[in-house]
């Protein structure tokens, strides 16, 4: 029994760690979509963030500088989406795919010299006061700063979105740009901020992956995490609180995949590796059923985006 509890807790915390990059993207993308803009480019922004963060950490020797650089890279790339969508009025899905390809290409091109470098990790909570907490200390120890920052972002975003005047305007922009305009505010500013925030969070997510979680840079290392996150935003109903369980879904599938392999389960690792895509997709199917019935909190401005091909 105790063995079982330990294993379960280990799995849960492993899930939390591998869910963190996805959680950061879900939070950022949920905020972007709340303003009525969808950005599939988060995958590319995440890759560029991961590469930039790793490169800066490797060159300067300071992983925190890497995290900051990653955030900047994410914001910078997201501005391509902003210019295309807000400035030129281009289709949001197509523009997102363009950003996705650009981020993948740039990170592969400029990341090559850094492949195989060693960097200092961000460290974790081991040997801090946390280790002295009875029972849980053992599991809390491996928690790293990016996990904590991402978790703290949940209440912060929630308060901003639901308790502040700016948050209200942010949400109203996503429901109807006319309302925001009639109230005397420019909806484009809110959407610009929303895209930039999505860029910040996806860049940070890249750093969480490359500088913290794996301490490694490999071409294309995000492997669709950003795209899974865009799907999970729908599962989370555009709500920062639901983002955590939604992202844990991905984390748990990945942790389960690794766990099953370490137990020597006789299933091909390639089949197990489909779990982090299949499980979110299955839950997405379930949550779409609910969405169809009630609308499920989809910002009205997004419906238009989802229903136009050009």
């Amino acid at each position: 029994m105790e063995y079982f509890t330990t294993e379960l807790l280990t799995l849960l915390f492993a899930a939390l760690r591998s869910a963190t990059p996805v959680l950061a993207v879900v939070l950022g993308e949920a905020m972007t979509q709340r303003s009525g803009v969808i950005n599939l480019g988060v995958e590319g922004q995440m890759l560029l963030g991961a590469m930039t963060g790793f490169a800066v950490a490797s060159v300067t020797g300071d992983p925190w500088l890497g995290v900051i650089a990653a955030c900047c890279a994410g914001i910078a790339l997201s501005m391509v989406h902003a210019i295309l969508v807000l400035g030129c009025g281009a289709n949001q899905i197509a523009s997102g795919v363009a950003v996705l390809i650009l981020g993948g290409g740039l990170s592969a091109y400029y990341g090559t010299p850094f492949v195989g470098d060693k960097i200092d990790a961000l460290g974790n909570l081991n040997h801090t006061f946390v280790s002295d907490i009875p029972l849980l200390g053992e599991f809390l120890g491996p928690i790293t700063p990016t996990v904590l920052i991402t978790l703290l972002a949940i209440p912060a975003i929630s308060i901003f979105l639901f308790r502040t005047r700016t948050g209200l305007r942010w949400r109203s922009t996503g429901e109807s740009q006319d309302i925001t305009r009639n109230l005397g505010h420019n909806p484009t500013y809110y959407q610009l901020a929303a895209i930039a925030f999505g860029g910040l969070m996806s860049g940070f997510a890249g750093a969480a992956l490359a500088v913290d979680y794996t301490a490694n840079w490999v071409e294309g290392m995000t492997a669709g995490r950003g795209l899974v996150a865009v799907g999970l935003v729908i599962v989370a109903r555009w709500n920062p609180w639901y983002a955590l369980p939604a992202a844990l879904l991905f984390g748990a599938s990945e942790a389960l995949n690794l766990k099953l392999q370490s137990w020597g389960v006789d299933i091909s690792p390639y089949l197990l590796a489909t779990l982090p895509y299949m499980i979110p997709l299955s839950v997405l199917m379930l949550s779409y059923r609910g969405l169809r019935a009630s609308g499920g909190g989809m910002p009205a401005g997004l419906r238009v985006v989802f229903q136009s091909a050009r």
């Binding site: 295309l84 400035g87 009025g89 281009a90 363009a98 390809i101 290409g105 740039l106 071409e219």
Partner: peptide, 26 residues
């Protein structure tokens, strides 16, 4: 020339076409 440059050039082309076509249509 690294292989990734093909991706970058494709993306640049896509971005330029999206921008110009959208502005032209507008």
């Amino acid at each position: 020339l690294p292989k990734a440059s093909a991706d970058i050039l494709q993306a640049l082309l896509f971005i330029i076409v999206l921008a110009v076509a959208s502005l032209w249509a507008r």
